[in-house]
Amino acid sequence: MNLTLKVWRQKNTNDKGKFETYKAENISPDMSFLEMFDVVNERLIVEGKEPIAFDHDCREGICGSCSMYINGRPHGPNNGVTTCQLHMRSFKDGDIIVVEPWRSAAFPVIKDLAVDRSSFDRIQAAGGFVSVNTGNAQDANNLPIPKNDADESFAAAACIGCGACVAACKNSSAMLFVGAKVTQFALLPQGKPEATQRVLAMVNQMDAEGFGSCTNTGACSAECPKEISLSVIARMNREYLSAQLFAE
């Protein structure tokens, strides 16, 4: 396959940045999108040019590192996948592909397509944990948990913190991410004692980081590689409002 890439190049956070056009030639349709970028970068290095910076780590869809806003959608045209799970067979020979970094005030560009997602870490550090060490594993039936709660909590815990929700949202809202983190703990007995402080602290931090508010377009959930449901946002709203209204 031969493709034309229009890639956002930005030297550092303060640089204005601009699109550059690159040719990606002799690309196998079985390559992942990141492998295609590796091929382009190798050629750039041989030519003595600066390779394109992009985030990647596990390359199997579980670390949440790879980002890239491809042809107007986070992680490209397919649903429920990260960029490393996107293969070139999803494109046609001769396609022009526009690649941009996640764009959000809370995700400043570090270089080219790599953005600083430490705002997510700070939200997580504000309350996304259980304070007390749990000690040794208990007997399996010590804490009965309804199957539905366990399933829903597990589905929320599948969030890999990639930031596609923020990238997809027209308001750069982080509510799907925060909602998933809140939901994951709120449904389990281990998370309940700190549920009130947790939701207040995480939402406060989310607002302080400069994310927008939610219009319930559902774009976040549609673009989430882990297909996290919009219902986690409703749960977060419920937890937050009842914490504000009723917690003493």
Binding site: R73, S104, A106, A168
Partner: peptide, 23 residues
């Protein structure tokens, strides 16, 4: 909410993930 994204995307495929009315 516009301030939460100071640099806009060059290309947005909104209809792929949400309804026009909601946007």
């Amino acid at each position: 909410n516009k301030k939460a994204r100071p640099v806009q995307y060059a290309m947005v495929d909104g209809k792929a993930n949400s309804h026009w009315t909601s946007r």
